[in-house]
Simulated scan of single mutants.
Amino acid sequence: VLRQDISVNEDIYGGMSRAELSQAQDKELQLAQQDIKMEQTKDKKNTLESYVYEMRSKLLNTYRSFATEPEREGISRNLQETEEWLYEDGDDESEHVYTKKLEDLRKLVDPIENRYKDEDARAQATRSLLNCIVENRMAVESLSASEKNAVFAECHKAEEWLREKTQQQDALPKNTDPLLWSSEIKEKEDILDAYVSHITNLRKSMDSH
């Protein structure tokens, strides 16, 4: 039997070879990635632009009493410069550049934003600690006299600490960093709760033996 090799070119998808198809798919993927990158860059630019407008408004209203005059002036100047840059040299920049610009602005605004946010958080934390003190004073019925006194003493210490710190905080203007942060009050509550839980658990353990 006579065998003869016949050369065959495999054509698929309307006459495209596998190599051509692979190239076309790579090109399509590349274009899709470019589209995604462009969209991400556009989003970052819009985020920066929105931040500029939002902070300018908040600085005049919501955050006004929480920023010093030099802080307001400095931030306002940076916001104005950023806005002008966005419509001039920064009209067609990379995602990284927009991200960096936003980070730089946040570094200026964050301290003021933190003061504003912590005022409400501090009030909530204060109420929570006072409730914790009341509840722990009421939860000592099963304890011995010395254990009760120990709990009462810790509650009193927490109460006095809060009163003293609150007085000091209230004497400060809003446009300075708090002397008393809400996180400190929360920590004090956690410590008090842990102390009372330790004593009550010891009592339960002793009573069970």
Rank of each mutant, 00 (worst) to 15 (best):
T62Q: 12
L143I: 00
E28K: 15
E83H: 10
H156R: 15
F66Y: 15
S7M: 13
N149E: 11
R3K: 14
R18Y: 12
T99A: 07
Q124K: 14
M16I: 11
S57V: 05
C132N: 14
L130N: 10
V196P: 06
D104A: 09
Q169D: 02
S65F: 05
S50H: 07
A121Q: 08
K45F: 10
T41S: 01
D5E: 14
F66Q: 04
E88Q: 09
Q124D: 06
H96W: 04
E154H: 12
K107S: 09
E135N: 13
L130D: 05
L59P: 00
I6H: 05
C132H: 10
I12T: 14
E20S: 07
Q33V: 07
E54T: 12
S146Q: 09
N9L: 13
M138H: 09
R18P: 11
N46D: 11
S65P: 02
L21F: 14
Q80P: 02
P178W: 00
E71H: 07
Q167K: 14
N46R: 12
T176C: 06
L102E: 13
V97S: 04
S183T: 11
R72E: 06
S76P: 03
M38Y: 09
L60N: 05
A153M: 06
D35M: 10
V140Q: 10
D190G: 08
L60F: 04
C155F: 08
Q30C: 11
G90H: 02
V151Q: 11
L29H: 12
G74C: 03
F152M: 10
D110A: 05
K58A: 03
S17Q: 13
E159L: 05
Y53Q: 08
Y195R: 12
T41A: 02
W181V: 02
T166K: 11
T82H: 07
Q25W: 06
D193Y: 06
F66K: 03
K101Y: 05
E154C: 03
D193E: 10
D120N: 09
E189L: 06
T68M: 05
S146A: 13
V196F: 05
S142G: 15
L179V: 06
Q80I: 08
H198M: 12
R64K: 11
N136I: 01
I112N: 00
T82E: 02
M138T: 07
A123K: 13
A121G: 01
E95F: 05
E71T: 02
V97P: 03
V8A: 09
K42D: 13
A125F: 01
A158Y: 02
Q168R: 10
E187C: 05
S197D: 13
Y53F: 08
Q167P: 04
E189F: 04
L59A: 01
Y53R: 09
I133P: 00
Q25N: 12
R127Y: 08
V1H: 15
E54R: 13
L180Q: 02
F152G: 05
T99W: 04
S144G: 10
K37I: 05
V134F: 06
L60H: 03
Q23K: 15
A139C: 04
K37E: 14
S76K: 07
H156F: 14
Y63V: 03
